[in-house]
Design a binder for these strands. Structure first.
Length: 485
RNA sequence: GGCGCAUUCGUCUAGGGGUUUAGGACGCCGCCCUCUCAAGGCGGAGAUCACGGGUUCGAAUCCCGUAUGCGCUACCA
């Protein structure tokens, strides 16, 4: 990417993930966390978790837990925190006071109603909305009058009205803003809580953050942050604004796009290692062909230089594919272990719990290559467990007439009855010649047996399936098929 | 409306002036394998590199403009 600073910071890398608990974390949030984590791990730095809970009204119950659950699930372990901004109010108030004392900020008594009215008016006149600075130069007499009316003021920053503010973005190069487009933004709200702008700067400084990697949506407010750093006499950290992740409609990812919360991906049967790999590739790439990378490889190769500047549309089909790759790569033991919760939860209630572990171990190899998510496993294996087969008799009669089917089924029944050694090889050695004897194509004959034995037209290979099901169950099901005809 | 950022196949991306008839992946289509479904193998369609001007012997790559998209424009983060 253009304009990357060649200078590596001598100080140890310290980065943070600073979500607000105003909702459950979605892929976009988590991708930001992931890049911060990767940057920290690649550089042997520190990854800090900081909860920005300064919006009391919008705080969502359980969001903080969901954030930590999501991070833990993906293996994004943090070295410090979680810090809570709500427990650090003193620091912000102290800094706000200092700025007021130094005449770099001021008390504003304007009511929300007045501000709203002003905004409406500005919009109507197609003027840029922004605070009109009415309280910026209040006389002490005017202030006293306001105090009498018991209006709790907010603290606003005195933005410069002319000149420019610029900064260097690690990904995008130099960015310049006209100060005239900035208004006097609020630092401290009337409830005593800081706004994002203040709390963010104070904490990043106090926590000695060296690099701020955050979503692109913050780019526009960065000049405010730079100005604040200057006002406080602090050195700003290095900045990099990451490309956003968009929904299929190309809008900023939000709850509206469904299943956005990271924990839902877990519940939908995605593997954390698969999602990790997939997310890493949303905005970062190793080269022109490598897509499947382990966590260690990604950590090893991760670099800011290879982060793209373009927003990425989240592509679920590709995630599904990649998740399938990771499922197939699981050891049988792991696959069983991870599928178990899904089976316990989604198999019909009539199936006895706990599930028979030995039986399960024989079933699972037959579906591992066929599942894109763990959540599909119960669906894929259901016919192994249920006793009464419910399927439409029309599935049996593919290309065959009733008489032909009956004949095929009955001869099969007779031959299989005599089979003592019930396994894949012996089943095949009997049934394959039988197809010829019946003058049926294998596809047709095996298809008939498949429906009879599994109740469906698509299943794992027939003989292996029959072996696992066992003689008793297969015989019963074949007889049932005869009855159905 | 103002400001900012971005713009390579439908999607994720490679590419950093000549190595490009623009490479890979998902998805899609076809063939092979095959008892079905997957998986796998092979192949195909799919991008006038948003558009218009420059700069240059040469531009997807550098510059400018336009368009489009997105973001910000709250006592939200």
């Amino acid at each position: 990417m253009p304009g990357l600073e060649p200078t590596l910071p001598e100080a140890k890398v310290r980065v943070r993930f600073a979500p607000s608990p105003t909702g459950y974390p979605h892929l976009g949030n988590i991708r930001t966390a992931l890049f911060n984590w990767l940057f920290a791990r690649h550089n042997g730095g520190t990854f800090i978790l900081r909860i920005e809970d300064t919006d009391v009204a919008r705080t969502v119950q359980g969001a903080t837990e969901a954030i930590m659950d999501g991070l833990r699930w993906l293996g994004l372990d943090w070295n410090e925190g979680p810090y809570f901004q709500s427990q650090r109010l003193d620091s912000y108030r102290r800094m706000a006071d200092q700025l007021v004392r130094e005449d770099k900020a001021y008390l504003c008594y304007c009511s929300p109603q007045r501000l709203e009215g002003m905004r409406q008016e500005q919009m109507k006149r197609k003027q840029p909305p922004g605070y009109d600075r009415q309280c910026r130069n209040l006389t002490s007499k005017e202030k006293a009058e306001m105090e009498v009316h018991c209006i709790t003021p907010v603290v606003r920053f005195k933005s410069p009205t002319e000149g420019q503010t610029s900064f260097h973005d690690l990904l995008r190069g130099n960015i310049v803003f006209e100060n005239s487009t900035l208004d006097d933004f609020i630092l401290l709200k009337s409830d005593g809580y800081p706004t994002y702008h203040l709390a963010n700067i104070v904490d990043d400084h106090l926590m000695e953050i060296t690099h701020v990697l955050r979503a692109d949506e913050w780019l526009s407010s960065t000049p405010r942050h730079v100005l604040l750093y200057q006002a406080l006499g602090w050195q700003p950290p290095q900045l990099a604004h990451l490309p956003m992740i968009l929904g299929p409609d190309k809008a900023k990812l939000s709850k509206r796009h469904g299943a956005a919360a990271i924990t839902e991906y877990r519940d939908q049967g995605y593997l954390p290692e698969g999602l990790f790999n997939f997310l890493a590739l949303l905005g970062w790439s190793l080269d022109d062909k490598t897509e499947l990378l382990s966590k260690q490889e990604i950590v090893k190769h991760f670099s800011l230089e290879r982060i793209s500047t373009t927003a990425a549309v989240f592509n679920r089909e590709k995630l599904d594919w990649m998740n399938g790759v990771y499922i197939r790569g699981l050891s049988m033991e792991e696959f069983c272990r991870r599928s178990l919760p899904f089976l316990e939860k989604d198999l019909p209630t009539e199936v006895k719990r706990p599930l028979d572990a030995d039986y399960l171990r024989r079933i699972m190899p037959l579906v591992q290559g066929r599942a894109k998510t763990l959540a599909e496993v119960p669906q894929l294996t259901e016919f192994f467990f249920v006793d009464n087969m419910e399927y439409d008799a029309s599935l049996l009669s593919g290309k065959l007439g009733r008489e032909e089917m009956l004949k095929a089924l009955q001869i099969s029944l007779a031959k299989l009855e005599a089979l003592s050694n019930w396994n894949t090889a012996s089943l095949e050695s009997i049934l394959r010649p039988l197809a010829e004897e019946l003058e049926l194509k294998t596809g047709v004959f095996f298809g008939l047996l498949r429906v009879a034995v599994t109740g469906r037209t698509a299943s794992p290979p027939l003989f292996e399936t029959m072996e696992v099901l066992g003689k008793e169950r297969c015989m019963a099901r074949l007889k049932l098929a005869v009855d159905k005809l």
